[in-house]
């Protein structure tokens, strides 16, 4: 049975496997579609809308949309680039992101996307919301000022019985991601580190480990995000 599918992204031919999502297929073909809430190995949930693309005049998220034969995807076009930049700006103004003082600076996907989209001053007014820091856990600091509510920790950090260490709380613009107090106390070193690595920004910090990698030698210090994919 032939499971190969051909379709186009911005006119470029992409060869994909049936069942792949557009983001996966693009990546395998050297085309970068920016993502934030998507994380390899976890089920996608189009939360951040960063990977929005257009297929026959409809906006879809490419992390959740499976490939289909002959589809024509528009991705790197001014309109959509402006949407993506707008999302980065929205996430900046709706949190309190002070990059110079953040342990994740240089390894932060939000910061890297802001550079990639050449964000100078966000078009939206800063909201300066009042948010807290939960440092009660022995291993993890949950910094709410930096959380972009992408759900990666909720989906990815679970115990053997499938229970989540993290979950949403409230709704709308009062939404937060919180760490389970009891389960959090028992979290293993490995899982706590995984939680930090899972987090695209500096909202989950493994205690006493913030600057273990020196500034200047971090993931996005030399090359922009996405350049590891693009051919």
């Amino acid at each position: 049975m032939n499971t190969t599918i051909k379709f186009k992204i911005d006119g470029r031919e992409i060869i994909a496997e049936k069942g792949q999502t557009i983001v996966e297929a693009a990546k395998a073909n050297g085309v970068y579609i920016p993502t934030l809430c998507n994380f390899e190995g976890l089920p996608p949930k189009g939360c951040c809308r960063m990977c929005t693309i257009r297929i026959s005049n409809r906006y879809m998220t490419s992390c959740t949309t499976p490939v289909a034969e002959g589809m024509e995807v528009e991705s790197d076009i001014p309109e959509i680039t402006d949407f993506r930049k707008g999302i980065v700006e929205l996430l900046f103004v709706s949190g309190n992101h002070f990059c110079p003082a953040c342990e994740k600076s240089g390894n932060c996907e939000l910061q890297a996307l802001a550079y990639r989209f050449k964000m100078m001053v966000p078009r939206f007014p800063f909201l300066f919301p009042q948010k807290g820091i939960d440092a009660t856990n022995p291993k993890i600091i949950k910094e709410q000022n930096r959380c972009i509510l992408c759900k990666r920790c909720i989906k990815g950090i679970k115990d053997d019985e499938g229970r989540s260490y993290f979950a949403y709380k409230n709704r709308g613009n009062k939404l937060e991601v919180v760490l389970d107090e009891k389960m959090g106390k028992e979290i293993t070193d490995a899982l706590a580190r995984k939680a930090m690595d899972n987090c695209p920004v500096g909202s989950i910090i493994y205690k006493e480990l913030g600057y273990y990698q020196p500034i200047g030698k971090r993931k996005y210090d030399k090359k922009p995000i996405g350049s590891e994919i693009e051919i």
Binding site: K45, G46, C47, C48, R49, M50, I87, L90, L91, V93, S94, F124, P125, L127, I148, L149, Y168, N170, R171, G172, N173, K174, L175
Partner: peptide, 17 residues
């Protein structure tokens, strides 16, 4: 603003702004 589920970065923030 009151009724947004808050999941999407767009609908969570833009109506308020």
């Amino acid at each position: 603003i009151e009724e947004s589920c808050g999941s999407c970065s767009t609908c969570r923030n833009l109506p308020f702004i």
